[in-house]
Nucleic acid binder design. Structure first.
Lengths: 344, 344
DNA sequence: TTGCTTCATGTAACCGGTTACATCAAGAGC
DNA sequence: GCTCTTGATGTAACCGGTTACATGAAGCAA
């Protein structure tokens, strides 16, 4: 037995569909007794409006699409949590779309969003902007999050990866490190590239030795980096990984190799995922409030959907959360505002 | 300029809407040249079908709703990852619905799913079944995951929490522990209640002393439990928390208090979230493959949507992953199959 | 040529809502 | 009594697709 439709309710209540619609949507131009009667009938029939039909006729789905490259790890889980909290507050639903790294499948999926969502929050650090724009439905409001740079202005949100990396290197230098190893993220990933750039700049400016090893943002590649260095008997006193998971991998490998952290080698990551404060030694990392970041993207998208003009590229500058995995700088060396300890 | 519709394409290509539909959906009863012509025109106009309209007329959305109580922590992130992987494989989209603990808002949201999704995976360990069934749209296929027990059979998936808790207690006992503290989860939560029940049963059977403290599944309540015990100068040699996050909180608190784990007090959790193997000492925990669990729910829901008959209550029995936070049992005491070390 | 089949194409109904506009009754003003 | 206004209610078009059925042309056999 299929679900009741608005016409079933209308027939059962001996009124027109228009009245039913009015009764259930709280229109004022309806007699209160009639409204109550219709509501009773609807409840009795167990009528639940068909959201799809409603969306079609209203040309509005109250749903926003979230495009992310991956769901692995705590970064996305935090981001999603922040977006969900905000969306729920605004009465919006979240349709998840994971690109799984495959650009072509991603394009298909992007198309599938048309008529399903009112707008998109797109986080695609691994795709080129041209590719992205070519397939973003033209009239679809969208907020770009950490996407590659591109022509023109668009509503956009970005982590200042360069500044974050610079701050980490400065923190390491202040703690006395001189020979830095950077475990980079995937080359195609814009976040990874900018963190590398910030690292290069800061090391050059501060006269630090820099060795760059290629990683892929997974824990294993952090472990592998240490193995490589070990095999070469390379000398280094700090490892800065382009994200926390790789830093964790490196940290574990160093511990297994019996190298003292931070006394022999300092370790730092990027992202401040929740587990960084739980491992031992707790990991120093560059932090933005990931959940807030996600929530902000949703707020701006909601504004866009409601027709607000918005062409801002908004930046979030990470701060360094100094924990046990790096040596603390001497008290008064606070050229840059570096936050100590934990936020919670 | 709004997006092109199928009628725009039809007009531009001088054919009927039916032909356009046929051309774009790969129907065979259309002349190849005409099909190609239509596809060219569609591409030129940048036509992207309106999924909402398509769904309405097909009475199928290719979307499944995921109802979860919360998005905090790695358990849900892993579950979601598994579900997404499977859904994407089956060509399904995921619409996220977080209940945020509020039962009434949850009900509204459940209703909002009608006409938006083809089916639901409902994970609602904190809601009573009556409440749930009363508001699950009658004709909506749904797979229940870790829900409270109820009358009748339904497609359902459950972690065998009792068996998992029993296995953990047996493992602790085998390692020589005699005075167990159990940090329980929220009383309204069915998982929490069953883990407590398993703990009670096993302790009674094995003649172990048991102290139960109330927790709420968050890290803090694990910490708080240790503080309580400390204040009372209580004697105990093992802490079994009803989930990993509380176990982590307890572990951290014990470390801060200078109590050796596992030598003075053993610690075990439940869920095997990814970070359990990264902290130090690595946490012993009861494990199911969370991602697989989620994927399985999606597979069964997809079957249900396609009309398959399915009334099975499927169980997943956790195994104990013995790590550094508990003492290992002597070699030949393997009454129950307990897995050593780490998977991966 | 006629009649029948086959196949490509078009027409229009339908999915289940919303809502502009038409209609109609009641009350007000004269 | 008549017109005008006001407000409740109904009718039907519309959102943008899909598809059952109608149509008509081509192919083929007799």
């Amino acid at each position: 037995m299929p679900n009741a439709t608005i016409r079933d309710v209308a027939r059962e209540a001996s009124v027109s569909v228009a009245s039913v619609s009015r009764a259930l949507n709280g229109a004022t131009n309806i007699r209160p007794e009639l409204r109550d009667h219709i509501r009773d009938v609807a409840k009795r029939l167990g009528y639940v409006p068909h959201a799809g039909a409603r969306n079609l006729s209203l040309a509005r789905s109250s749903t926003i699409g979230v495009v992310v490259p991956d769901l692995h790890g705590e970064f996305f889980s935090e981001l999603l949590r922040g977006m969900d909290r905000q969306a729920s507050e605004l009465g919006l639903h979240l349709l998840l779309m994971v690109m799984h790294g495959e650009a072509d499948r991603g394009v298909t999926a992007l198309h599938a969003m048309r008529g399903r969502v009112d707008g998109l929050v797109v986080m695609a650090p691994q795709i080129t902007s041209d590719e992205l724009f070519a397939h973003l439905p033209k009239s679809m409001p969208s907020v770009l999050v950490n996407c590659a740079p591109h022509e023109g202005v668009r509503p956009e949100l970005r982590v200042d990866n360069v500044a974050g990396a610079v701050a980490v290197i400065e923190h390491l230098a202040a703690g006395g490190c001189r020979r830095i190893v950077h475990v980079a993220g995937p080359e195609a990933n814009i976040d990874a590239r900018e963190r590398l750039r910030g690292t290069r700049e800061a090391c050059a400016r501060l006269g630090l030795e820099l060795r760059v090893l290629q990683g892929d943002f997974n824990e294993d590649s952090g472990t592998a980096a240490i193995a490589t260095l070990h095999a070469e008997r390379a000398a280094f006193d700090a490892v800065f990984a382009a994200n926390d998971m790789m830093a964790v991998g490196a940290l574990m490998a160093l511990k297994r190799a019996g190298i003292a952290v931070p006394d022999q080698v300092a370790v730092a990551g990027f992202d401040n995922i929740p587990l960084t404060r739980l491992i031992s030694p707790a990991l120093t990392t560059a932090s933005i409030d990931i959940a807030e970041f996600g929530a902000r993207a949703v707020v701006r998208l909601a504004g866009l959907i409601d027709g607000a003009a918005d062409d801002t590229l908004e930046w979030r500058a990470p701060i360094v959360i100094a924990r046990e995995s790096t040596r603390q700088p001497p008290k008064n060396t606070t050229e840059n505002p570096i936050r100590r300890g934990d936020r919670e």
